[in-house]
Design a protein around this nucleic acid. Structure first.
Length: 244
DNA sequence: AGCGTCACCCGGACGC
DNA sequence: TGCGTCCGGGTGACGC
């Protein structure tokens, strides 16, 4: 979706006027966006990497990084804490702008190998940046892409239109399994940003440069692809397939 | 079309 | 110890 400059740091007073008296009717998610419908509008929050949402009683002192606070009539507050200020808060008329700009949900029932194959073959892109691109598939970040590619035994620099049916199926499985593993472990708490999860203790390749591959014990390699640290096993994830 | 690069941001890790 | 520098995360804009 568009990420207009003017929503980067919304004026607090404008915001306050617009959402005062509204009722939270639901809490939803689409891709990495948290959607909070407020009667006619929708509050959209992106945590990026260092953002965190939590409920606090209003009497609790405000934390150093709690830049945005939503007051409830009950006396509780929804606080958006974000030490690196990368997160975004937007108020939109409806979710269509976000919805239309995102690819399919990889854990949805209709995300099958055929749909993944269509996306991959329609573009001639490197696997890593394609999978990171929210317009292609919604919700995969750097960790999950590295983990999914390792599960699928695919090199991050493979071209998306070079995969055969078996590889597409393996990638489909890898994407879903790595997301499910993340969910099972309540997500990852990397850096010092603690969110309660322990998925970081179960990474197969991400952030494990030099450590043994859990499958074959080869040292994990780190390269940079599309400006992103990219981790893979040079034995399991071969770039060039021998011609036969 | 797709890639590389940059900007955004800042706590912490690292080097001297 | 204290300072300076670099890093990394997700996204959009931009140039090629």
């Amino acid at each position: 979706m568009k990420w207009p400059r003017h929503v980067k740091r919304p004026s607090v007073s404008t915001f306050r006027r617009q959402i005062r008296g509204r009722t939270v009717t639901d809490v939803l998610r689409r891709g990495k966006f948290i959607l909070i419908p407020l009667d006619e509008q929708v509050l959209v929050i992106h945590l990026m990497m260092s953002g965190d949402l939590h409920m606090q009683e209003s009497t609790n002192p405000r934390g150093k990084f709690e830049h945005t606070v939503f007051e409830f009539e009950s006396g509780w507050q929804l606080r958006f804490s974000d030490s690196r200020k990368f997160g975004r808060v937007m108020l939109l008329k409806d979710v269509s702008e976000i919805d239309n700009s995102l690819g399919p949900e990889p854990l949805a029932d209709d995300f099958d190998p055929r749909l993944l194959g269509e996306i991959l073959l329609k573009h001639k892109r490197l696997l890593k940046p394609l999978l990171m691109d929210q317009h292609m598939i919604a919700g995969l970040g750097n960790i999950y892409v590295d983990e999914a590619l390792h599960r699928a035994k695919l090199h991050p620099l493979r071209h998306s239109d070079s995969l055969n049916a078996g590889e597409i199926k393996a990638l489909w499985k890898g994407i879903r399994r790595s997301l499910q593993a993340g969910l099972r472990h309540n997500g990852a708490s990397i850096d010092w940003v603690y969110r309660g999860g322990d998925f970081q203790n179960h990474f197969r390749v991400y952030g494990r440069k030099g450590e043994p591959c859990p499958v074959c014990a080869t040292a994990i390699v780190r390269i940079v692809v599309g400006q992103r640290g990219t981790h893979f096993c040079p034995t399991c994830q071969v770039e060039e397939h021998a011609q036969s």
